[in-house]
Every structure is written in C-alpha cells, then in structure tokens.
Simulated scan of single mutants.
Amino acid sequence: MSHTAHIPSHRKPRQRASKSALRAGVAGGVLSTIAVAGAAGPAQAEPVTQTIEMPTITSGFSTAVAASAQATQQVALDLETQADEDAAAEKAAKTAKKAHAEAVRKAEAKKKAEAAAKAKAEAEAKERAERASRTADRTTLSASSGSSDSTGSSASAPSSSSNVSGSAASIVAFAKAQVGDAYVSGGTGPNAWDCSGLVQAAYRTAGIDLPRVSQSQSTAGTQVSLDNLQPGDILYWGGAGSAYHVAIYVGGGEFVGAQNSSTGTVQRSLDYDRPTGAVRVL
C-alpha cells in the first residue's frame, strides 16, 4: 500500500475552504445587490403631495352661530313662560271652581236656615195662640165655676178641676197652659221644660218655692193616697225621696207633666202611666 493513500485530511480542508469561499461570495453578492437597490430606491421614488384646504371661520359665521344660540335660548324661555302661564291659569280655574262651589253651598245652607227659622217662628206663633186660647178657656171656666158656687148651684165632684180655687187653681191653670211645650232635660221654660222644672214653675205662680229636682219634690209635702187626690197635688214615680219623675194632678183623674222628648208636655189620664205616690203641699 502506498504511503500517500493514508492522507485524506489534506483533501477535506480544501473542500471546506472552497465551500466557505463560495458562501462568502454569495453573501457578498446578495449584500451588494441590496446595497445597490437601496441606493437606487430614493432616487426613483417620487413623493405624493396633497393640499387640504380648511374652511376659514369668518366673523359673519360667528355672528350667525351666536344669533342661532340666542334664538334657541329665547324659544326655550318662551316655552317655559308659556308653561308657567298655563299652570297659573289652571290653578286659577280650580280656585274659581272651588269658590263657586263654596258660594253655592253657603247659599243653600242660608236658604235652608231661613226656611227652618220661618217654620219655627210659625210653629211658635201657633203654639202661643193655642196656649192663649187654652188660658182664656181656663179663666172663663174658673170664673163660671166661682159664680155657680156663689149662687148655690151644684158643684162638680171634688176630683174635678172645675171647682178648684185659690192657689190650686193657679197651679192647675199654669200647668194646663204649658201642654204642647217641648221637653228638654234641665228645661225651666218658658216654652221647654223637664218634669220638675214644670212643677216648680207652676207652684211659683202660687208663691210657693219648691226644690228643683224630682227626688226632693217627692217629699216636699204630706204623703197622700192616690185614691184621695186633689187638684194641685204632686204625683211622683219611683220611691219617695228617690223619684225619677213628677207631674201635677189637675183633677178629673188626669195629670199634666213634661214627660219626655217624644211626647213633650201632655195632659193624660192616670191610667196612661200610673204614678207611685203623691204629696200635698197646699
């Protein structure tokens, strides 16, 4: 075998060197091309220039804008003013309507009050006329009864009011004259009574001062039997000293009393409401 056959390393370095040179040459060529292209590029490109004209705001345009803004503000102000005026008009209309309704109500109330006052006056006038008529009748009756007694004519039964004289006659006549008057709790006349108020006022016409309340009036005199009553006796309902109602016996089996708010002052038979007892003050 030859000695030179064993030196492969002498060839391989040469191959690597040639390859390196080749690569270097290629790289240099590429870079040269890029450099030439870069140098030629700016010389060949032409810049594109475009001019944009901006509008100029003149003084006239500014005035127009200001006027438009002022007009808009004025419209808004006018709308607000109109809204205020509409609200005020609506409020005034409501107030006027309410005032009219109140005036109508007051007028109707006044008309009703006048009608009620007129009716009351007529009723009171009628009552006074009836009372005067009853009083005249009682006076005539008492006078005729006294004449009969003085001439010796026959008199009525002791229980009848036709032969009553003196204080008893005055008490009975007053009580009967109040028939038809109203009953009012605590009433003492002249046109409204409660039971004890009527009895007290009747006895006052005879100069006798009675206690004010029923309980005291039921013990103001001598206790008498209901079978032995005389005109002018005080009738009571309930116990003596604890009576809840009183009236005046007027003779003929009848009494006059201010009963209650439904009936007022009435003349009734003892059988209508039988009393518990009686006292005689005269």
Rank of each mutant, 00 (worst) to 15 (best):
S269D: 06
A17T: 12
A5Q: 14
T265A: 07
A182K: 08
A76H: 08
H6L: 13
D78P: 02
L22A: 14
Q178T: 03
T188E: 07
T135F: 12
A173H: 07
A113C: 09
V179Q: 01
A177K: 02
T4P: 04
L77A: 13
A121P: 10
G253K: 05
G238S: 00
S218G: 01
A136M: 10
R212D: 10
Y244F: 05
S59G: 09
A202V: 05
S218T: 06
S59A: 10
Y183C: 00
S214T: 00
G38E: 12
K12S: 15
S59E: 13
Q230R: 04
S148Q: 14
R212P: 13
R131P: 15
V184L: 07
K91C: 10
D137N: 12
A45W: 08
A67D: 08
A67L: 04
A177F: 01
G189C: 01
D86T: 09
V256Q: 07
Y236G: 01
V65T: 06
I34H: 10
K111S: 15
T63F: 03
G221V: 01
Y249H: 07
L22K: 10
S170K: 02
A206H: 02
A143S: 11
S218K: 02
A132P: 08
R23H: 12
G25M: 14
S156V: 09
S144M: 13
G146A: 15
A258S: 11
V179G: 05
Y236H: 02
A89M: 11
L79P: 01
D227G: 03
A117N: 12
Q215E: 02
Q15Y: 09
A116W: 10
P55H: 01
V30E: 05
G197W: 00
A107E: 09
G38S: 15
S18P: 10
P190T: 03
Q215T: 03
S185Q: 09
A202P: 00
D86A: 06
Y183H: 03
A103Y: 05
S261T: 14
T263H: 13
S225A: 06
E90H: 08
R138G: 13
S161T: 09
G277W: 01
S214A: 03
R138Q: 14
Q259Y: 11
G253C: 07
S68I: 08
K120I: 13
I57M: 14
V172N: 00
A103V: 07
A66W: 04
Q200V: 03
V36Q: 11
T135I: 12
S59N: 07
V266R: 04
Y183W: 00
D273Y: 11
E108A: 15
Y272M: 09
S162R: 08
A24P: 13
R14Q: 13
S154Q: 09
G253D: 03
Q50E: 12
Q200K: 11
A96H: 07
N191C: 07
G241L: 00
I234D: 06
V65E: 05
P158Q: 14
I171P: 02
A17L: 13
A201S: 01
G180N: 01
Q200W: 01
D233V: 04
A96V: 02
L282T: 14
E46K: 13
A93L: 06
E130V: 14
S153P: 04
A125I: 10
P8S: 09
A45E: 12
Q215V: 00
A169I: 01
P55A: 11
D181M: 02
A40V: 10
K12D: 14
A177G: 08
D137E: 15
D78Y: 03
G264C: 04
A17R: 13
T51M: 06
A115H: 04
V30K: 05
